[in-house]
């Protein structure tokens, strides 16, 4: 297996980009039940199909950035939109992130034969390392999303009126501080001191 050839491989992948994107989207769809996958594929209105359109809109730019890194912000934005959805859906962490390994499969499905024919296996491994790094980045985003969910749950609990009886909204108390409480109750509320 000869080393090098990454530029040549990128050329092939760029040429086949459309098919790779399509294949990857198909593989992402297949992580959902068949009826759902069918709907995600068919419905083109982005507001009637938010998950399908998120996948559709993110897959192309992510692959483009892998092929030729240009704008890390755009790359991150699309990765985030893809993962943000899967982070709250009915997936385990590994299933949520499996779609990035599926991209390797999609690439092999489309250009595997040509890669072997032209002896570009080493270059493919090198490119797959890019996919691996992206997957690690995706894992970061996934964790941020999950932590955000817990943060929202925590805030929700703080605001939850049932934990208080006869008092004020907790978030309001924290925000407005003691001033009004002093006025209203004529003394300090020990819990806020």
């Amino acid at each position: 297996m000869a080393r090098g050839g990454i530029d040549q491989l990128i050329g092939i992948l760029t040429e086949q980009k459309g098919s790779i994107v399509e294949k990857w989207i198909q593989k992402i769809h297949e992580t959902y039940p068949p009826e759902t996958a069918n709907f995600f594929r068919k419905e083109r209105n982005k507001f009637a199909n938010p998950v399908g359109s998120t996948i559709q809109e993110a897959a192309g730019p992510i692959i483009e950035e892998l092929l030729e890194p240009r704008d890390s912000e755009v790359f991150y934005k699309h990765l985030d939109s893809l993962i943000r959805v899967r982070a709250v859906q009915d997936f385990t962490a590994y299933a949520a992130l499996s779609i990035f390994f599926a991209l390797k499969g999609a690439i092999r499905d489309i250009v595997g034969k040509q890669v072997r024919r032209e002896g570009l296996e080493w270059a493919l491994l090198e490119f797959e390392s890019r996919v691996d790094r992206m997957t690690l980045l995706a894992f970061d985003i996934f964790m941020q999303c999950r932590e955000k969910v817990w943060e929202i749950k925590r805030d929700d609990l703080l605001k939850r009126p049932f934990v208080l009886s006869g008092g004020m909204c907790a978030s309001y108390m924290v925000r407005r501080g003691q001033k009004h409480l002093k006025k209203a109750k004529g003394s300090n509320n020990p819990s806020l001191n």
Partner: peptide, 17 residues
């Protein structure tokens, strides 16, 4: 009605159709 529910659209769970 199948694809009109926000829970189906967001979850992808067919039992939310």
């Amino acid at each position: 009605c199948a694809d009109k529910c926000h829970f189906f659209l967001g979850s992808g769970d067919p039992k939310n159709m």
